[in-house]
Amino acid sequence: MKISYLAFACSVLFGLSSSAGAHEEISSPSQAEGESRDLLQREISTHLAQIKNKEDLQVYLTSMRGIQTPLDTLSPGAKRRFIESLVFTDRGLASFTYVDIRNELTLSEAYKLLALFGREATAASIRGMRVENEADRLISQASAEAPLNDYMDYWCRTTATCTKKLEDICVGPNC
């Protein structure tokens, strides 16, 4: 698959075709390739996340004291409730309550907040998110085609257990 992308990129860059004088129609990537890219993007996001566990969260909160962060887009009470709702496993963020995010933030603000945990793609799956600007629209559009393994109205109480709980999200791959 990597070789086919490289060959495609080279043919586009250098105007090459598979046979002299012939024009080859380039088709869009297959669904399997698209899902593979989505999985790779999620892995990259998780790897680059600033907060992967409770210790990272404490270091982040301490080091960013006095500095505006995406967490501060939530009201003080909502920020406290969100932080208290976070569940981590050895794979990263596994669950959180979304009600305050939905009630207080736009889609792009939620995206930035969840990016701290490598879960930015989850923002668009939260029902009722406000779309108020171009960034919100772009996130909504990009996320419409990307499959997620997150479970709305479920909670990850311990590893490998998504349990029904309203207004929570169980991050399937991390639970």
Rank of each mutant, 00 (worst) to 15 (best):
F117T: 00
T69Y: 02
C156T: 05
A135Q: 14
A124I: 09
R80L: 11
F96E: 05
R102F: 00
D90E: 10
Q31S: 08
E145M: 14
K112C: 10
S140V: 01
A123R: 07
R102S: 07
L138T: 11
P70W: 02
I139F: 10
N149K: 14
F96W: 06
S45D: 12
F96I: 00
G128R: 07
E109N: 09
V87S: 06
A123S: 14
Q41F: 14
E104W: 04
T73E: 06
L86H: 01
L74G: 01
D56V: 01
E84A: 12
T97S: 13
F117G: 01
I44R: 13
L105R: 07
L57V: 03
Y111T: 11
A94V: 08
L40P: 07
K79S: 02
S140W: 13
E55N: 10
A78S: 14
Y154N: 07
Y151C: 02
L93G: 04
G77I: 06
L40V: 13
R157L: 09
Y111A: 09
L116A: 05
Q50H: 09
R42T: 11
E134M: 11
S75P: 01
Q68G: 02
R42D: 14
L86Y: 00
N103I: 00
R119C: 10
K79T: 03
S27A: 08
L114H: 03
V131P: 01
S85K: 00
D38G: 11
E167F: 15
K52N: 08
L113W: 01
Q68L: 08
F96V: 02
P29L: 14
H47P: 03
T62G: 10
E109D: 15
L40F: 15
A124Q: 12
T163I: 14
S28M: 12
R91Y: 13
T73R: 04
I101R: 01
A135P: 00
K54W: 05
G172W: 02
A78N: 00
S36D: 08
E84Y: 08
R102N: 00
I67P: 00
L71S: 05
K52S: 06
E33L: 15
R157Y: 10
P29C: 08
W155V: 06
Q50T: 07
P76Y: 05
D38A: 15
D136L: 10
A160H: 13
K54T: 09
L74H: 06
D168S: 15
I169N: 07
L166A: 12
T159A: 12
E120L: 08
E145H: 15
I44W: 14
D153S: 15
Q68W: 05
A115N: 11
S95Y: 04
L86R: 05
C162H: 03
D38H: 10
A115V: 00
E43A: 13
G77C: 01
Q41G: 06
D38W: 08
E84C: 01
A121K: 15
S75A: 02
H47M: 13
T158I: 13
G128E: 05
P76M: 02
R119I: 04
L148D: 12
K52I: 06
T73Q: 04
T69D: 04
D72W: 05
F96G: 03
D136R: 10
Q50I: 06
T122K: 03
Q41C: 09
L113T: 04
A49R: 07
L93K: 01
A115Q: 12
S143R: 13
K165R: 13
I51A: 12
S45P: 06
T159R: 14
